[in-house]
Design a protein around this nucleic acid. Structure first.
Length: 202
DNA sequence: CTTTCGATAGTCT
DNA sequence: GACTATCGAAAGG
């Protein structure tokens, strides 16, 4: 079975089903690799926290397409990347929130240093979705990339982690649908970001 | 460790 | 003009 089929099969379920499956897998881009330690699930039109909730726009178009594509958006001057899963028409995304840099540490540190004056501990290089994309050099121009058909290993699937190593809780910074525990992380991993409640509007 | 607050820029109303 | 699926610095425990 080709890797392409493996990935396509692995991403076939609903967002909360697939999300923990990505923990421990490795995301490669531009000479840096990150082992995923934290993921959030954003489900289709029924999830009021999802960008897709209010329908298709120019920004979220990729989420409405086939699974295995990368959905990249920008906000607050940072980029966040999602892996699209499920079937076309049910726009679901998996936000990659944090990871451990396992290759290209010097380059990752260089990219981070451009936006920070103080020293960065190694386990914090890819802690937080904006920091992770900065380490990897992912920008809005990577939106729509098909991870299944890329010649290099974009997303290197690893065997699923034992359930005992996985924790879950509410999503970070999300003001709606607070009751669902759709953030998943590897228990005890230092690269996992700390929980932040949504800031009250106004 | 925690909380709070301002900066930030792209998207949508 | 108002909103964020954010970040880092600063201040407090």
């Amino acid at each position: 079975m080709s890797r392409q089929e493996d990935l396509d099969t692995a991403l076939a379920g609903t967002a909360p089903q697939v999300a923990p499956r990505l923990l421990g897998s490795v995301l490669h881009h531009d000479h840096v690799a990150v082992r995923i330690t934290e993921v959030e699930a954003y489900a289709g039109p029924d999830d009021p926290a999802s960008h897709a909730w209010r329908g298709e726009t120019a920004r979220n178009r990729t989420m409405f397409g086939p699974r295995g594509h990368l959905y990249v958006y920008s906000m607050h001057g940072h980029h966040c990347c999602n892996v699209v899963c499920a079937d076309p028409g049910t726009p679901t995304g998996l936000l990659i929130r944090a990871g451990e840099v396992v290759a290209g540490v010097d380059l990752a540190r260089e990219r981070r240093a451009a936006h920070r004056r103080t020293a960065i501990p190694e386990h914090q290089l890819a802690r937080g979705p904006g920091n992770l994309t900065r380490c990897l050099g992912i920008t809005r121009s990577d939106d729509g990339t098909d991870l299944r058909n890329h010649c290099g290993p974009w997303l290197e699937l690893r065997p699923p982690l034992p359930l005992a190593e996985v924790r879950s809780g509410p999503r970070v910074g999300v003001p709606r649908a607070v009751d669902v525990a759709w953030r998943f992380w590897i228990a005890g991993d230092p690269s996992v970001s700390s929980f932040r409640p949504a800031r009250s509007s106004r």
